[in-house]
């Protein structure tokens, strides 16, 4: 299905898209200068203008995430905390849910919504001894609309990444709920299996929707990528010429005779 946006989000989307285009423009103008148009024959449009962006198509080509996030040559520093699938899942209520913010925010960061100053570019963050995860949708800037910190860590500003430590922020005694949290009877859909593929060696399928995760490289490229889903070949860019989504589970069948009108 298409990336759908709830009605109230449309206004935000338009604003976000405009900002996104601006961002992309900012990124691409130096590129055009490098490539050298003849100054006497400037093209009419300042950049490739394919109309309103279809994010799932443009993403991998256009909004290349921060340079530190890609490239097979970027080795992780030995002192960097690993980003495991276990932590990745623990921050999301269900597959595809917006992750909550696992680290403390300063009051200023919280008030000014400064997430994108780190999460667009990526790279090693000494403050956390870890590589910063890169957002796949930098065109959205009101991050706290979907991603929320734990209230008690606002203003604390202390980075905590390990699952144990995250839990212990609320659960002083691991077996007892924190006083204000009412437990619910709910369990998420199953996490997709990793490495689903048709044959040994064939390209893996895309086991999730692409909505808001159109830029494959943001999550699958570079040293901040979660162990187990980091691509070995981020430079190829045209990801979906080999990796395709699963739109429906059925296989094709037809009768021997009379299948056509």
């Amino acid at each position: 299905m298409a990336p759908r946006v709830p009605l109230f989000g449309r206004v935000l989307l338009i604003g976000g898209a405009a900002l996104g285009m601006l961002l992309v423009l900012t990124l691409l103008i130096p590129t055009l200068r490098d490539l050298g148009d003849r100054p006497d024959f400037p093209p009419a449009a300042p950049m490739a203008d394919p109309g309103p962006p279809i994010a799932s198509e443009a993403g991998p080509f256009r909004s290349r995430p921060g340079e530190l996030a890609v490239g097979p040559e970027v080795e992780r520093r030995a002192d960097a905390q690993p980003r495991s699938m276990e932590i990745y899942r623990s921050l999301r209520a269900y597959p595809g849910a917006p992750p909550r913010i696992p680290h403390g925010l300063t009051e200023e960061e919280f008030r000014k919504n400064l997430c994108n100053s780190c999460h667009v570019r990526g790279g090693f963050a000494p403050r956390f001894s870890a590589y910063t995860p890169v957002t796949p949708h930098p065109e959205y800037t009101d991050c706290l609309q979907c991603h929320v910190p734990d209230a008690m860590t606002v203003g604390v500003g202390i980075p905590q990444l390990s699952a144990d430590v995250i839990c212990s922020q609320c659960h002083v005694d691991p077996d007892s709920p924190p006083p204000s949290l009412v437990s619910i009877d709910w369990s998420p859909m199953e996490w997709p299996e990793l490495d689903q593929r048709a044959m040994e060696g064939s390209p893996t399928w895309i086991p999730h929707t692409l909505q808001l995760r159109e830029n494959c490289l943001a999550c699958h490229g570079g040293p901040s990528a979660v162990d187990g889903i980091r691509t070995t070949h981020p430079e190829r860019a045209d990801c979906r010429s080999c990796h395709v989504p699963v739109e429906e589970a059925e296989v094709f069948t037809r009768p021997l005779d009379g299948g056509s009108p």
Partner: peptide
């Protein structure tokens, strides 16, 4: 998809 990858469309 080709348009998006191109420098100009």
């Amino acid at each position: 998809r080709t348009s998006y990858a191109a420098d100009r469309s």
